[in-house]
Amino acid sequence: MTGWLFSVTAGLLFAIGLYGVLIRTELVRRLLAANVMATAVFLFLIVVAAETPDGPDPVPQAMVLTGIVIAVSLTAFALALIRHFRAVTGESDPEGGDDD
């Protein structure tokens, strides 16, 4: 029950994130959407880890822990990139382009 529920939640979270990446053109919001997608993938990994019969599998947990730190550093880099973009173009979105 728990695994099924969280699998579906992860799928829907991935859908919401993907929808945001496709629909929002304002860059910070698009970054948030990409972060939601990443979280959905983490959730998938941990659901599989939690359902492993020998107890929670430490390998995916360690991978997700690494992933969380990578995600924050990439978010910081992307925010610097966005600020740079805004300084260069004076726009807060790339006119419907997909440059993120």
């Binding site: 695994g3 991935f14 859908a15 998938f44």
Partner: peptide, 23 residues
């Protein structure tokens, strides 16, 4: 996006949970 999410959930659900050799 809904199709991608649901498809992903279905795929993940069908992954065998015996964990293989790693855990």
């Amino acid at each position: 996006s809904l199709a991608a999410g649901v498809g992903l959930a279905w795929l993940m659900h069908s992954i065998p949970r015996d964990g293989g050799p790693t855990p």
